[in-house]
Design a protein around this nucleic acid. Structure first.
Lengths: 336, 336
DNA sequence: CTGAAAGCGCTTACAG
DNA sequence: CTGAAAGCGCTTACAG
């Protein structure tokens, strides 16, 4: 069961290895190789089940036909879905995807970038951690195509594809207002990442327009605290503000903590409190009552980001930085 | 920003590239290279930030330091968790993991095996689809180390690591019986995969021991039907058998469908019906009431499978087929 | 103790 | 129309 190489094909077909290489790579016509020879080479390759060594061709050409996908946590449904679509898209253009999770750890992120760089990936799709700006700049400097997703750095010139976070929470709050809710709270984390800022801004502006923004109704949770602490903080916050009648959670894990908090508070949803959370999740569909969400356009984000990346990879000199906003969708369920 | 190669180091350190290679690979001592030279080479490599080309070394040695992990669906929490642990384990021995999802499609599975083979992975960890036995045999024939997880083929001599499925459902049913439930149903799929058979067998035996097995209480659902159909079938089944007071779902997606069915039937859990499902899931923890589960020992399975794989990879000639059973754990929540 | 050289399997500029 | 040859960046048996 030894490995079949280009040499075996050449011997068997009685041509040179150059000829085989041209034929295999579909350059037969361009090199004006006779149809008869092309056919013969193809037949032999077929019969011997020849599979070119990607390693050898990578070494020779410097291309690996692979991209690196760095997400926060591949076991989070949002990122898992994203990864699946990106992988499918990549496969359709014969690219391989290496994916890995940062666990929102900045050092880990840098290591992953290094290790993917070493594996010679041709481009990166990254959900950056908070302090990854310098690493991203480094990638840009060495001319590696990069597309950021889900979040980005406000002052950095790099392509990114994100949901229109501002619009998403603005629309959600508008919806709550129309339904007649008056005292609407918001729960965010303290990460300070731009996408979270924008979601919070959408909330604030929607309320300000109606003249009933109350800065006392914003709860910021520590980014790296555990679920238990989050739940406790939420319980305390709502106990002290019984007049609140609706709440917007700005990330799905915040929403999940919130539901548990309300359960232990014995709040009835939506009678005691209406709930909308960012990012859809199985648990939201299963919950009693089912929970309304602002869902990300995962498929659109995935497709667009790989498009941007490919366009950078094919023409590095003159690609332009593109900032793409995709609209999320408010999925109304029983919780409002 | 050109790539630093072994040659650059050699030139800079004024030694031959052989010497550099030996030092970089930690074979300096063995080759009796003087400490002074070793130090010099290391310093230069450090200063130039030399990163060996994995591609070149792969081509030369035929080793890629990578393994392929083929799961059913990486966006399913069970597999995502599994993948994360396997990746961590692999990284600790400096191996890379390529992972991909079959979507339970047999053709896709075969393609994935082919493509990983072409990428020269040194070993496979696979959750096989139903008809993958021949492909697995092929891998064995060409001497590729393989470990199956989650399921396996009864008559094939190949190492695998799976939960003790029989014991898991046996224990769950025993628990229900002890709690006083009499008419216990089971919901399975028709896949016929061995792990599902064993789970069903555990259920049957536990009931037979008590003399109250009723074959009329087994519901088999089509493997590839959609969630809507599953829910409908479950509703019909339970409507026709109102005397049932407890149910065991043999996979988490079956349990999720079941919960939705009971919701539309307005059954109260656990008063109208007690519920236990296989495979833990966020939704089970979040549900009202929280749902008891038979949880897989994910970490143990992951660690053991990579151990088995490594032992095969290091000594292909004399590795033996190992069949490892790991015990699951019954997590009791409010649903019983 | 260290170096020159072959070779892994390809691609491609060049020659004819 | 086709082939010989160089070279991608390593590793390692061999020679000294």
């Amino acid at each position: 069961m030894k490995k079949i190489t280009i040499k075996d094909i050449a011997t068997k077909a009685q041509v040179s290895i150059s000829t085989v290489s041209f034929v295999i790579n579909g350059k037969g016509e361009k090199m004006a190789i006779s149809p008869a020879v092309i056919k013969k080479v193809q037949d032999v390759a077929q019969k011997l089940q020849y599979k070119p060594s990607m390693i050898a061709s990578s070494l020779r050409t410097g291309k690996t036909r692979s991209i690196g996908l760095i997400v926060e946590d591949i076991s989070n449904q949002f990122f898992a879905d994203l990864a699946r679509v990106i992988e499918d898209e990549a496969k359709s253009i014969d690219y391989r995807v290496f994916y890995c999770s940062t666990g929102d750890d900045n050092n880990r992120s840098e290591e992953l970038v290094q290790s993917l760089l070493q594996a010679n990936v041709e481009g990166f799709i990254i959900t950056p951690t908070k302090n990854l700006e310098k690493t991203i700049s480094h990638l840009l400097k060495i001319q590696k195509p990069v597309v950021l997703i889900d979040r980005y750095f406000a002052n950095q010139k790099v392509s990114h594809v994100v949901m229109d976070n501002y619009e998403g929470s603005y629309a959600a709050v508008k919806f709550l207002l129309e339904k007649g809710y008056k005292n609407i709270a918001v729960v965010n984390n303290k990460s300070g990442m731009i996408q979270m800022k924008l979601r919070e801004k959408g909330y604030v502006e929607a309320l300000k327009e109606q003249g009933n923004y109350n800065e006392n109704y914003t709860l910021l949770l520590d980014y790296h605290s555990n679920e238990k602490n989050r739940i406790d903080s939420i319980i305390r916050f709502f106990e002290e503000r019984p007049e609140i009648d609706a709440v917007l959670f700005l990330a799905n894990y915040l929403g999940l903590a919130g539901l548990q908090a309300f359960k232990s508070l014995k709040y009835k949803i939506p009678d005691d409190i209406a709930v909308i959370s960012f990012d859809d999740h199985d648990s939201f569909k299963m919950y009693t009552p089912t929970i309304s969400v602002v869902a990300q356009p995962i498929e659109e984000i995935a497709v667009k980001s790989i498009q941007l990346l490919m366009s950078q990879m094919t023409s590095l000199e003159d690609f332009k930085v593109e900032k793409v906003l995709k609209k999320g969708s408010l999925i109304v369920r029983e919780s409002v």
